[in-house]
């Protein structure tokens, strides 16, 4: 009985350690791509679709047309994301969402999982200075959700 509990705890602990979230500062890019999941938990494409359409979150539709989403006023600062999964591997899409500047030099696309260094970082859209522990725009799991959603965009 006692052995059992110890064993179970050990397993949970090991699982926790193996899938510890990758912090924004610890992400490693290879030619712009990020092979490893940030969380070890598979992304949920439906949640990802919400993140992509919501302004304080990813707000991908501000700049990209995504026909699978019903959000109005989809922008065209970036290319259409229809068929994105036909053009990119999952690891490449993860890299683009985390920080597209590793894939597209000088791009205007913001890094969604990045905590700096920034010039005059603000506290979201308040115009005030950012707190010292400025969180990334998306959480690690939201990044995985968006990547899972992008992987559904096939033509």
């Amino acid at each position: 009985m006692k052995r059992h509990v110890v064993l179970a705890t050990a397993v949970i602990f090991a699982a926790g350690a193996a899938f510890a979230e990758t912090a924004p500062t610890e992400v490693t890019f290879e030619e712009g791509a990020v092979a490893q999941s940030l969380t070890g938990v598979p992304g949920n494409p439906e949640e990802g679709a919400k993140v992509a359409a919501t302004r304080p979150l990813g707000n991908c539709v501000a700049c990209h047309e995504i026909s699978a989403l019903s959000a109005d006023f989809q922008g065209n600062v970036g290319p259409s994301l229809n068929g994105a999964a036909d053009r990119w591997e999952e690891a490449q899409l993860r890299g683009i969402v985390i920080d597209a500047k590793h894939t597209f030099e000088g791009t205007v696309m913001p890094g969604m999982y990045k905590t700096g260094p920034f010039i005059r970082p603000g506290d979201a859209y308040t115009g005030k200075a950012a707190p010292a522990d400025l969180p990334p725009i998306l959480t690690a799991q939201q990044v995985e959700d968006v990547v899972a959603f992008l992987m559904t965009l096939k033509e």
Binding site: V61, G75, K101, P110, P121, G122
Partner: peptide, 24 residues
Amino acid sequence: TRFGQLEMSCASCHEENYGNNIRA
């Protein structure tokens, strides 16, 4: 200068993207 967490300059919107739509 590319300011803020979105790392965008005035030029990002008004020189590189005038004529385009950013959301509405």
